[in-house]
């Protein structure tokens, strides 16, 4: 139903670590693979072997190039950031309130935003209302598809306990995707968000996303030595004993 719940019991969502996402698309493809056989209609691909293949995906990995401003020591090199994006399961989900059929709804128990595909008439308005491009119309079934947060996995008693997590989280090789209750400040994901300064996408849209993104850590010149400290360059100064071979004698003596 189209009005949003006042509050939800839990706020399940994803936390994506942009510092270690290598942009491998594993999450996107495993999402496609699980969901084409899972919740609702298959995620179809039209003209799959043709000139203009177009399929429905619930998770897509963008790649951005960021040009930092020059640092005091000179121009800073550009950086590449991989950026997976799926539904953020917003608290104030505009995609839900615009839906004329009631097919779009936000679950009271866990905050997951879902489409009841049996009721969806495929008008596309919810996709227009979503600022994030997180909803895609299935080209064959004509109903709206979106990330289900793998609602058919996370509670699925036919899966072993440890597999009751989203497909994308389970497959991510870099461990860049975390799943949990962002409504519980003590949960691992909430802790991560606090420690790493997790942020919302387009906060100005007022959607209050549940999913959070962890920023890339400082790179290149902004960074000290390994472990964060400055490298003791003085240590690498030429040994005092006459040249390298002179040092060698001393050093060999030391190791005995």
């Amino acid at each position: 139903m189209t009005t949003l719940p006042e509050s939800t019991q839990r706020k399940l969502g994803l936390v994506i670590d942009l510092d270690i996402c290598v942009g491998c698309h594993a999450c996107a493809v495993s999402c496609k693979e699980w969901n084409t056989g899972g919740y609702g209609a298959p995620l179809a691909d039209t003209d799959a072997y043709g000139a203009d293949p177009v399929g429905a995906w619930l998770n897509r990995v963008h790649t951005f190039e960021v040009q930092p401003p020059p640092s005091p020591t000179g121009p800073a090199p550009a950086q590449i950031v991989h950026f997976p994006k799926s539904c953020l399961h917003c608290d104030d989900a505009p995609c839900v309130t615009v839906c004329p059929t009631g097919a779009s709804y936000k679950r009271v128990e866990d905050g997951i935003v879902l489409v009841n595909e049996d009721h969806c008439m495929g008008c596309g308005l919810c996709a227009w209302a979503c600022p994030y491009g997180a909803r895609e119309m299935d080209p064959l079934a004509g109903v709206m598809k979106k990330c289900t947060l793998c609602v058919d996995r996370i509670y699925n008693e036919n899966l072993p306990e440890e597999d009751r997590i989203p497909a994308c989280v389970r497959s991510c090789p870099a461990g860049a995707r975390h799943f949990g209750d962002l409504g519980d400040p003590d949960s691992d994901v909430s802790q991560l968000v606090t420690e790493r300064g997790g942020f919302d996408l387009m906060p100005e849209q007022g959607t209050k996303p549940t999913n959070k993104y962890l920023p890339p850590r400082p790179r290149d010149a902004q960074l000290g030595g390994c472990g964060g400290g400055a490298v003791n360059l003085a240590e690498l100064a030429e040994p005092e004993v006459k040249g390298f071979l002179g040092w060698l004698d001393k050093a060999l003596e030391r190791i005995g």
Binding site: D19, I20, C21, V22, G23, C24, T63, P77, A78, Q79, I80, V81, H82, A174, G175, P216, R217, P218, R219, D220, L223, G225, C226, G227, G228
Partner: peptide, 24 residues
């Protein structure tokens, strides 16, 4: 990286592993 280690990527192109490298 999660354990706080540092990655240095030596590569003419900064994608993939080199994109997440702390220094390129």
């Amino acid at each position: 990286k999660t354990n706080g280690g540092k990655v240095i990527g030596v590569n003419p192109v900064r994608t993939g592993y080199n994109a997440v490298a702390d220094e390129w």
